[in-house]
Simulated scan of single mutants.
Amino acid sequence: MNDYMEPSKQFVEYLQIEKNASPYTVKYYQNDLEKFFLFLSAEGIDGLEHVDYRVVRLFLTGLYHQRLSRRSVSRTISSLRSFYRFLQREEKITTNPFMHVSLPKQDQPIPGFLYAEELEKLFEVSDLTDPLGQRNQAILEVLYATGIRVSECKNLSLSHIDFTIGTLFVKGKGRKERYVPFGSFASTVLDTYIRDGREQLMKKRGVATDTVFLNARGNPLTERGIRLILNKMVERAALTVHLHPHKLRHTFATHMLNEGADLRTVQELLGHENLSSTQIYTHVTKNHLRDVYLNSHPRA
């Protein structure tokens, strides 16, 4: 496997530096590459340039025999296709054996979201006289008001907030930037936290920072920290749902579409590169419309 390590290392550096991939994304790519390299070693294939369509089919057959989900197989194919595309760019190989391999069709899971009643319970659990309570409420309001990712929330700086016109400047995946509006509820809670709770938290650290959301010691919150905060809020609200930050993003998109927002607008607000990523939420709204119809139409 040593012959494969140098190109693999270069590819990981490319993902981290040029593509600005998250640590999770890099980890998945590395796992897929390692799986592929082990297969090549077992088959006695001593060079990446010796991989052809026949070898690829043999590799995929092995994946299916492992009873991996179609989603996992699709991700592995995409990872290796990107890896070979990189090798082509670096002129280490001439052809990409994964280029014409079709991805297995997979069922699109309908994203989970929160109903208005569940959200109301969450909005009532924080102590707004306490610095941490103000922070927690601000995180909840911002995530629901804007639909931003937890990584984007973690990276918010004071300079990214414009209270005058009610917008956040967000740096998304792949260094893509966008402006996202937020409403009066988020504005009020965020302003209170920044002027009061955040100032108290920052005093504990003793060093100024531009990061908006801070932990109890005054240091910038991590993604894991935000997840823990939301789960504790769910416990206090006595809800039975598992609330990961992405569920608030799903809720934002679903509620926007249910209230009549067009798909292109929601796509832009979410920072999706492709409309197909946003279209999954139309399945939720179709179910909603069907339920309303069945419960409301006299002859349904």
Rank of each mutant, 00 (worst) to 15 (best):
Y281G: 00
M1G: 14
L263R: 05
L58H: 11
F37S: 01
H255S: 04
P111T: 08
Q16P: 02
G197A: 02
D162T: 12
Y4K: 01
P181I: 15
T25Y: 04
K121E: 12
D107F: 05
V125R: 05
A300S: 15
F36L: 04
E223H: 03
L158W: 07
S296Q: 02
H288V: 09
E152C: 04
K121W: 09
H50G: 11
T167G: 03
R205M: 11
F163D: 02
L221P: 05
L132F: 07
R224S: 06
Y179M: 13
T265H: 11
S157K: 15
Q267M: 10
R290V: 15
E43K: 15
G147Q: 07
R224V: 14
H272E: 02
L80F: 06
F39G: 04
K286S: 13
H160Y: 08
N231K: 15
N96L: 06
P104V: 15
I165Y: 06
F98Q: 07
E152W: 08
N96Q: 05
Y24Q: 03
R85L: 13
L132Y: 12
G197V: 10
E43A: 13
H160N: 15
Y293F: 12
M202Q: 12
G62D: 14
E235D: 08
N258M: 10
F59V: 02
Y4H: 07
Q279H: 07
Q137P: 04
Y29N: 01
S102G: 05
F169V: 00
H255A: 03
T240W: 09
K247G: 07
N96A: 03
L58D: 05
Q267N: 11
G218W: 06
N31F: 14
S41K: 14
D196Q: 10
H288R: 13
G172F: 11
V212W: 00
F169A: 01
L275Y: 02
G174M: 01
S159K: 09
P131C: 08
M99F: 15
K247W: 14
S159Y: 10
I110A: 12
D191I: 03
